[in-house]
Amino acid sequence: MSVKGINLSHTYALHSIFAFDALKDINFEINDGEFIGIIGHTGSGKSTFIQHLNRLLSPTAGHVLLDGVDINGDGIMMKDVVKKVGVVFQYPEYQLFEDTIYKDIAFGAKNMGYEDIEGIVKESMELVGLDFEYYKDKAPFNLSGGQKRRVAIAGVLAMKPSVLILDEPASGLDPIGREEIFENIKTLHKKKNLTTILVSHSMNDISNIADRIMVFNEGKLEMFDETKNVFNNIKMLGNIGLDIPESKKLLLLLKERGFDVDTDLYKEDDVINEVVRVLKKG
């Protein structure tokens, strides 16, 4: 499903002395099946932005279109929107409330009025790598942090969205938990051809996974381009105070020292191969 924004703006506390422009005239188009990364500092407008994509907030000016249809248009219900755009917020384990994992995952599916709830729950659990029989009757509150998070993600998947938005899905997890979650998101994207939008502070995480990157700064969409090009715009990133991935930094350091490396690369495996290639050649 494609997501498009036209002159999207949002002002909090409009018409008051506290008025604050959180989003300023944002235009973008995300294609069906793309994997988009969103970067920016805390307070750059990232979370205001994603809340517009499933209508938790409505733009004070401009439009958000899903497959060409304005989600704030006449006759469109909130339910129609959240059905298509699933959002997994930061620390999503806080949204768990039922006494069994099954019931919690079924919550969204039931709200959407789906029929085969059990089938959907089962599929969602498999998608996040939780064994249905083993986990379905367990209480979500006794799980580890990473597992709770996967239950929460399954709860969103159970609504069968075409667009999946994840806000810092790995924050607070240990390195292994992080890796597992990202592996999971990657396979999900492949298997279901979900249009995926990932908000993350970690350049390393984003660089390994995103096709294109949106850079937010002070409510503006500073840049929206292929990952390679965004990381090549070091000056802009530096001005905003954002870092580039360590892998890319290494290539730049080597280039500086006269090595003939391809500095367009940024994925960890590619970078290692490149370093090895250049050294073996020389």
């Binding site: 290494l250 350091l253 020292r257 960890e268 290692i272 370093v275 050294l279």
Partner: peptide
């Protein structure tokens, strides 16, 4: 990261100091 890279390099037959901790150190070693 730097340690991971030097480890992979060693594995593919390039002999490099294996106790580098930062990318600056790694670049120097290379």
């Amino acid at each position: 990261f730097a340690t991971r890279v030097s480890y992979e390099m060693n594995k593919s037959g390039i002999n490099i100091k294996d106790d580098v901790l930062t990318i600056d150190e790694l670049a120097e070693e290379i």
